[in-house]
């Protein structure tokens, strides 16, 4: 025989259960999920790192030196030297080395044809898949007049070129 005492306690228990479920739902639904699209914070840090490395390379080594390392690399079109120095600075950490990769272009103006051209300076390595979350960092470089032989491919005149580096973490 079922008796009807304690009905209010049962109702209270049901109400408490509903309130607890509701609380759990609210707590879980208010925290957002970090998706691969939300990479703004690592991107921001990577961009700062890349521009700092370029700024460092664009600083002359001594007060009376003629130009910076970056200027020398671009002037001589020395892509391997540029790549190893850039990645060396980028991947330098206190512990194990970081795993950053890069490619670089130099944009220049062909004064004879008056068109903007792009020179592939450093090709991306084999780890490039096309789906990296890469950031772009840039630095202006001013090249001096060079009489002969004409500097390939920028030409001999004094000019400003833009070094653009794509940087990503593999």
């Amino acid at each position: 025989m079922v008796n009807d005492s304690g009905q209010l306690y049962t109702m209270e228990g049901v109400a408490a259960g509903v309130i607890m479920l509701l609380t759990v739902y609210i707590v879980i639904s208010t925290t957002s999920i970090y998706t691969p699209g939300d990479t703004h914070i690592p991107d921001m840090q990577l961009e700062q790192l890349g521009s700092d490395v370029l700024a460092m390379m664009d600083t002359p080594n001594a007060k009376d030196s003629t130009g910076s390392d970056l200027e020398t690399f671009v002037d001589a079109d020395d892509s391997t030297g540029f790549e190893s120095m850039f990645l060396g600075y980028c991947n330098m950490t206190a512990g194990a080395t970081d795993d950053l990769h890069m490619s670089a272009n130099v944009t220049y103006r062909d004064a004879n044809l008056n068109v903007i051209k792009e020179h592939p300076f450093v090709e991306p390595d084999d780890s490039w898949t096309g789906r990296e979350s890469a950031v772009r960092v840039t630095r202006w470089v001013q090249l001096d007049l060079q009489s002969s032989p004409p500097r390939s491919p920028y030409g001999s005149r004094a000019q400003a070129v833009l070094v653009e580096v794509l940087l990503w973490r593999a």
Partner: peptide
């Protein structure tokens, strides 16, 4: 540093480099 305020074909070319490449790439 390089050209000061001189206006000659060399400096005009560098000036045009900066404005044209800024417009094109940035």
């Amino acid at each position: 540093d390089k050209f000061g305020n001189t206006v000659d074909p060399d400096s005009q070319a560098v000036r045009e480099d900066i404005t044209r490449i800024s417009l094109e790439r940035k």
